[in-house]
Simulated assay, not measured.
Amino acid sequence: MSDATDADGLTVGQVSARLGVTVRALHHWDEIGLACPSLRTAAGYRLYTASDLERLHRVVVYREIGLGLDRIRVVLDHPATDVPGALRAQRAQVAERIDRLQRLGAGLDRMIEAHERGLLLTVEQQADVFGPDWDPDGPAQARGKYGDTTQWRQYAERAASRGPEEWRAVADATAAVDRALGDAMDAGVAPGSPEANRLVERHREVFGAYFPLTRQMQVCLGRMYETDPGFAAHYDGIRPGLAQWFRRAVDASARTHGIDPDTATWQ
């Protein structure tokens, strides 16, 4: 490194401001021998010449397109390097990242929409999946009622990744457990019996397609199924008296797990 006066080159700070590169980065490139100042003043300050600045420009350009420092060194210092080939390889990597980011963006859009709407199906798809009696306004009403809850957020996270076929599987599983409950009641299965307890657990597992359901939360659902006119009509439409039978079955199952149904809360 030659000695020089301040007028012979630019200081680290001046180069940092001119190129938009941090002083720390310039020091690092100097330390690893990638882009070093050629001059030093009598006071020991490092100065970059016009030639040094040109090399730095190239380092910055290659770094901005994503080349690593080791690869930049090869491109700059080895005449036999296939620079177009290296750039094409980098272009392919950039294209892959762009595609990944676009897919990530699409996923974020669906997640946002799921949090805002709940069910990402058209009215026609909803009718096809859930049947002609399905109320397409139901998800919006649920959003207005439960949108600030943890369970709505969990539901939205599941809904964001589901299309018609995934929802059809959920609807079929729900309908199957509803039929099984009705059949059990018809067969005289007693709440609290092993068979009834297995059905209560099956209901809890199937309901987990919407959000994780604890046993205490299931007790609260059982109350709502019996007292809410809409839910009661649904279950009693499967079998008269099923809403009450299911509530009794859930309460009995809860007691076997040390839960008092009379004091159970949504937790």
Rank of each mutant, 00 (worst) to 15 (best):
Phe231Gly: 01
Ala169Ile: 13
Asp172Thr: 14
Leu213Gln: 09
Gln267Pro: 03
Arg153Asn: 10
Glu157His: 10
Arg58Leu: 10
Arg117Tyr: 08
His257Leu: 10
Glu116Leu: 12
Gly230Arg: 11
Ile32Gly: 07
Leu34Pro: 05
Asp135Ile: 06
Arg179Phe: 05
Pro139Leu: 07
Thr81Arg: 08
Asn197Val: 09
Leu120Ile: 05
Val129Leu: 07
Val189Phe: 02
Phe231Tyr: 14
Thr49Cys: 00
Met185Ile: 03
Ala142Thr: 08
His203Phe: 10
Pro194Ile: 04
Gln154Tyr: 00
Thr41Cys: 08
Arg91Asp: 11
Val206Phe: 15
Glu31Asn: 06
Ala89Ser: 13
Thr263Arg: 13
Gly33Lys: 09
Thr5Arg: 12
Ala176Ile: 04
Leu199Thr: 11
Trp29Ile: 03
Ala254His: 01
Asp82Thr: 06
Arg88Trp: 06
Phe130Arg: 13
His78Val: 13
Gly208Thr: 11
Arg97Asp: 14
Gly144Asp: 12
Arg202Ser: 11
Gly66Leu: 00
His115Gly: 12
Leu221Asn: 13
His257Ile: 01
Thr263Phe: 09
Gln90Ala: 03
Ile72Glu: 07
Arg215Thr: 12
Val200Pro: 03
Tyr48Gly: 02
Asp262Asn: 06
Gly105Asn: 10
Asp128His: 13
Ala180Thr: 08
Leu53Phe: 01
Arg97Ile: 10
Gly66Lys: 00
Gly118Ala: 04
Ala106Lys: 06
Leu119Thr: 14
Pro79Asn: 12
Ala4Arg: 07
Trp167Glu: 14
His57Tyr: 09
Leu53Trp: 00
Asp128Pro: 05
Phe211His: 15
Ala114Cys: 09
Leu56Met: 04
Ala17Leu: 06
Ala43Val: 02
Ile65Leu: 15
Ala196Asn: 02
Pro164Cys: 08
Gln125Leu: 08
Ala43Glu: 10
Arg24Gln: 11
Ala142Lys: 06
Pro136Thr: 07
Ala35Met: 01
Gly68His: 03
Leu213Pro: 03
Val83His: 07
Ile98Arg: 12
Thr11Ile: 06
Ile112Arg: 15
Thr122Ser: 15
Arg63Leu: 00
His203Asp: 12
Pro240Ser: 15
Asp262Cys: 02
Arg24Gly: 01
Arg247Ser: 04
Val250Pro: 00
Gly208Glu: 11
Ala175Phe: 07
Ala89Cys: 08
Thr11Val: 09
Leu39Pro: 02
Gly258Cys: 03
Leu67Val: 07
Gly258Val: 02
Phe231Asn: 12
Arg248Gly: 02
Gly66Gln: 00
Ile72Ala: 07
Pro261Gly: 05
Leu56Gly: 01
Asp172Lys: 11
Val189Gln: 03
Pro191Glu: 01
Asp77Arg: 11
Glu195Gln: 15
Trp167Val: 09
Trp29His: 12
Asp6Met: 13
Gly182Ala: 11
Ala89Asp: 15
Leu104Tyr: 06
Gly66Thr: 00
Pro136Arg: 04
Arg158Leu: 14
Asp82Pro: 02
Gln141Asp: 07
Leu120Ser: 04
Ala233Arg: 13
Met185Val: 05
Arg117Asp: 09
Leu119Asp: 07
Ile259Asp: 05
Thr122Asn: 08
Tyr225Lys: 01
Asp148Ala: 11
Ile72Trp: 05
Thr227Glu: 14
Ile32Asp: 11
Phe130Ser: 13
Thr22Tyr: 03
Thr49Trp: 01
Thr11His: 10
Leu34Ser: 03
Arg247Ala: 05
Ala92His: 09
Asp3Pro: 00
